[in-house]
């Protein structure tokens, strides 16, 4: 478990369990409300039933600067379909009623600010959520969230990038709870044919400043990439590939892909 923990982190526990039984954790991303709220819940449940250890549910946002075209298109469709913030809590609650895997919300910061950081944290706890991944909130700008996550015991996942200094990596490691989101490559979300050496180098740097839970995301889309990542990291995060499968082939399609990806976690 990383960071100044106030309670056992369900995400860290799930990752640890996956490392006992397999090579590491598979973390799957899907946006809430795509293609519909019901389908996004069914798809998330299907991920867990097919080998995903931790769920990352994306909150659709009008200005997603860290996302590539596949996720942009899906989250825009969700917004066009009438997505409201409260739907995210509904989705978490309904998923948690059906499967045990911990659920993190991935959200840009303004929706949380407008909802009220404290109220957001309380409602996420009530829904059974595990915490937040914050792509545009770094530790140095996150005092309010640090306090509210400590108050509620929610996990908080900060990002580490290949360009981060050692000092900033230390900040991310010391303040993350659950895992550190290791950005594999410089760029936005989206499948890439090859992952460079940057991710492995970065995980090594995170280890050297004390990380015990580093998961690699961005560009990951095949079981082979997952197996490679789990050779040096604690988990692999897949997003765009799952979103594309859901868009193209519905819930059965995303279930099939999850099962295939999970084969990459075998030891």
């Amino acid at each position: 478990m990383t960071g100044a923990s106030v309670a056992p982190s369900p995400v860290a526990s799930a990752i640890e369990a996956s490392r006992q039984s397999r090579a590491g954790a598979l973390i799957g991303y899907l946006p809430v409300g795509f293609p519909t709220l019901d389908d996004s819940v069914d798809a998330a449940v299907a991920l867990v039933e097919n080998g995903v250890d931790v769920l990352e549910l994306g909150i659709p946002y009008s200005d997603p600067v860290m996302d590539g075209p596949v996720i942009q298109k899906a989250t825009q469709a969700s917004l066009d379909g009438g997505f409201r913030l409260r739907d995210a809590f509904t989705a978490v609650e309904r998923i948690r009623a059906r499967v045990d895997a911990p659920v993190l919300l991935m959200t840009y910061w303004n929706p949380v600010v407008q909802y009220g950081v404290g109220r957001f944290a309380d409602d996420l706890v009530s829904a059974g959520g595990a915490g937040l991944i914050t792509p545009d909130l770094t530790v140095d700008s996150g005092a309010v969230w640090l306090a509210e996550s400590d108050r509620t015991g929610l996990d908080r996942v900060f990002l580490a990038a290949p360009t981060s200094t050692d000092e900033r990596l230390r900040l991310a490691v010391e303040n993350s709870r659950g895992f550190v989101y290791t950005v594999s490559t410089m760029g936005t979300t989206g499948a890439r044919a090859e992952l460079g050496a940057a991710a492995e180098t970065l995980v090594g740097r995170l280890r050297s400043v004390g990380s015990v839970s580093a998961c690699v995301g961005i560009g990951v889309s095949t079981p082979e990439q997952i197996a490679e990542i789990l050779g040096y990291a604690d988990g692999a995060i897949v997003g765009s590939a799952l979103v594309r499968a859901l868009a193209d082939d519905g819930v059965p399609g995303v279930a099939r892909l999850a099962a295939r990806l999970a084969s990459g976690t075998a030891r």
Partner: peptide, 13 residues
């Protein structure tokens, strides 16, 4: 303030 992805913080610094 500065509410940006970590990937860009080094460039902003």
């Amino acid at each position: 303030g500065r509410f940006m992805p970590e990937s860009l913080i080094a460039a902003l610094d």
